[in-house]
Design a binder for these strands. Structure first.
Lengths: 74, 74
DNA sequence: ACATAATGTAAGAAATACATTACATTAACA
DNA sequence: TGTTAATGTAATGTATTTCTTACATTATGT
């Protein structure tokens, strides 16, 4: 995988605080990862594994497509 | 992320050979990864990054949800 | 103002994705 | 049958994800 030409946007925070209304920690628990991982993802620090992304989508009850958007950067 | 309780199934090969009708190498080229990575994914060797999964789905013109399925193993 | 919950963030270790190189096996086809 | 294309697969290295631990900052509520 190339490093540059694709950036990933997500609205985890939006949905977590909106319809889900849970804390980072609670989300992390339900998903089975750490709070720091959730925080980093919300911040867009990295490109999660597919399984992690799917589990987050499931917990938040949204489609993965609605949670993450891929965009070309050039 | 835990190692055990979720396994990932995919039908990359099915779709690649079916409606897409391209080789592993061609798919890899279009996606921007190596042939070995495609081969490993088809074999289910690992859990791809979300971006890689999305790009494969895009090239194969399917929804990511139709390409990969998550299943609990216990 | 104080206590506690929620979040930000960073350093280092551990795990694992992905690339590279290389060679072997199988499929397709002249 | 021989040649090439397609695929299998392994070893090793690099990059990146994720966890762990830890502490700081900000929000919330009394």
């Amino acid at each position: 995988m190339e490093k540059q030409p694709y950036s990933l946007h997500n609205n985890i925070r939006l949905i977590r605080r909106g319809k889900a209304d849970i804390t980072q920690e609670k989300l992390a628990d339900k998903v089975g990862c750490t709070r720091q991982t959730i925080a980093a993802l919300e911040k867009g620090v990295y490109n999660p594994s597919l399984v992690l992304a799917m589990r987050i989508a499931k917990v938040l009850q949204v489609e993965i497509v609605d949670l993450f958007k891929l965009q070309k950067t050039n």
